[in-house]
Amino acid sequence: MNIHKFYLNGLYIILDINSGAVHVVDKMVYDMMDVFDGSNDEAVLSAFSGQYLAEEVAEVLSELHQLIDENKLFSKMVEVPLHFSQKPLVKSVCLHVAHDCNLRCNYCFAGTGDFGHTRGLMSKEVAERAVEFIIENSGPRINSEIDFFGGEPLMNMDTVRHAVSYIRRRETETGKKFKLTLTTNGVLLNDEINQYLNDNNISLVLSLDGRREVHDNMRPFVNGAGSYDMILKNVTKTIDSRNGQNYYLRGTFTAHNLDFAADVLDIADKGFTQLSVEPVVAEDCDYALTEEHLPQLFAQYDALAQAYLERKRKGQGFEFFHFNLDLDNGPCVAKRLSGCGAGHEYFAVTPEGDLYPCHQFVGREEFLLGDVFEGVKNTQLPDQFRQSHVLNKAECRDCWARFYCSGGCHANADLFNKDINIPYKIGCELQKKRLECALMIQALLALESGK
């Protein structure tokens, strides 16, 4: 497949997959692309002679051939770059500083914090070793990332503070630079912690699902009471304390709120501007998403895209993670192949120091890779993850979205298909819908700006 065409929000759009060129066309071109293959002008003229004037068809063919000559249409398949090294460099780790939590979210992939094992906190020694693991295995890379994660990382602030001090010292000694993030449910946020996180330039991912009833239904305290009122108060104060910068409010939607666009807009109505909601990943339960839900979910993304544009035009815009698409630059091919890097560039570290391909794999013992004290001992799995990219996966290689989604989530593929090379179908369908919305939005904004 070399092109993808779709109609959305009044725009006929053609994406040239291998170059990334995005063309907004008229209905005539859109229809002709069902027949035109780059070398069959006579067939196109014959097929459309009764519908359009011959001169018009010839005019369109001339424009199409010009795009082909400019490598913006039917461009050649991108192959694995020769410099896509067989030897990956570690770029980031997810530090599970706490396998414990003060909420009991119904959909938690982490088994409400303990990842199916005993609850526990990461020691300062393990945190230091995790930092050294990156330094030792990142080669000439300068920039690395560490996410403080859980469970709930604020339940182990002693280790977080120690790790941050250690990281800053090692930056000075090694010349490496670490970007730090912390993912929290917001329960323990207070003025003192806000000040600390701001002073240390730690980006935040804050969990909020949307409307009160939606959030409380899925994110109760241990005693079953809803957490919405406390979380909204806390995250509002935290975001205000950092002048509305350097954060993402991240929600999860389920079969219980298939009208999730209303949840995004509810959060936006409260003045928050950096937003994301993700589909729950679950099966065989009342909140799991199924293929039957897809048409309704697609309509919600369409509605969200409309609202996104309307608010942006009024100067009341918000950023939605999945609509942020850089059509002019974007990641390099190597990055598009390696995607999240789970299992070869990115690792999760448990409180005990064990290494897994990512936070979602923690607790799946067959994916244990080693530990921060002795390094990666399973040498086969990282290679399998590195080779599990879009050009090597049968279902991805011919998919129009391959250079935007990077092959989907390995953990979901394993969960649903027991094979990291077979992508999770519902995830694929939702990703493609979000991409069409993002392409439409960026194309429309480019047209409106007269670019």
Partner: peptide, 12 residues
């Protein structure tokens, strides 16, 4: 007249 290209893959 019929096609507008709105943006400008081959090109740490």
């Amino acid at each position: 007249k019929h096609i507008i290209t709105v943006n400008k893959l081959q090109e740490e």
